[in-house]
Design a protein around this nucleic acid. Structure first.
Lengths: 126, 126
DNA sequence: AGGAAATTGTCAACAAGGAAACAATCTCAA
DNA sequence: TTGAGATTGTTTCCTTGTTGACAATTTCCT
């Protein structure tokens, strides 16, 4: 828990340089990974955040033009779509993000990293 | 980070039954571990929380009579002391807390748990 | 068909924590 | 001694996130 805490803090610090939260980045990463527009509640589900908060996250991202809300067949639903600008921003920043993560994991050998992820995976899927 | 997140959530849920935060418990645990009164800023340092927040945490714990503020030689400082009631509460609840933690770690063998803690330790001390 | 129940996004109210400003106090060098 | 600078606890304000209520919609059961 302490390790996760520290990593979240560092991550938050990193993203503050763009006026975003790591959770904003999370939304973009999920949209990028999905490869297609998905609903707000689906986003909330994937990132373990409340629907209410997803509303605010998407509000900001939409204001920044990183994201667009689409209507769809189900009139209750907002599909959220990554704009070209959003995709570009992800592409631009990803190397730095990945680099920082690798740097952070450097105290462990490649083999140890694998072991760690395997063990954590077991805990997560309980 | 995801594992830590989930554990924090569960922990918070557990303590809400007493109207406390896991951070309140953290304060008590630190005081219990210290075995002697320590200053608020020292508490903040040990739990990676701001002084401002320690003030609020101690406020509530004092109101609950789990903790007492003492004056000391340095008139800027509040030494915080665990009351008998606080110590008793810790003693009463500790078994359940430890039990829950053990239960949570059950997907891993004893050996795997040791490995995990060793690896996380390396990351923390970087 | 038609109505109960569930889902979705939003809003308001609230809780927890951080940052900056502040006064009181201490430390230490000149 | 004394005056600059550091430390400590507190207060105020801001940010982030959650909960609960709500209206609009959809789904499902009969």
């Amino acid at each position: 828990m302490r390790v996760g805490d520290r990593f979240w803090r560092e991550s938050d610090e990193r993203f503050s340089q763009w006026g975003l939260t790591d959770n904003h980045y999370n939304v973009l990463r999920i949209l990028n990974g999905a490869g297609e527009p998905i609903s707000q509640s689906e986003i909330g589900r994937r990132m373990l955040s409340s629907r209410a908060n997803v509303t605010k996250l998407v509000d900001l991202l939409e204001e920044r033009k990183f994201v667009k809300r689409l209507s769809c067949g189900d009139r209750r639903v907002n599909l959220v779509e990554l704009t070209d600008e959003g995709a570009q921003w992800i592409a631009d920043t990803l190397p730095a993000i990945v680099g920082a993560a690798q740097e952070r994991m450097k105290p462990l050998t490649r083999e140890e990293q694998k072991t760690l992820f395997a063990l954590l995976g077991k805990l997560l899927n309980e």
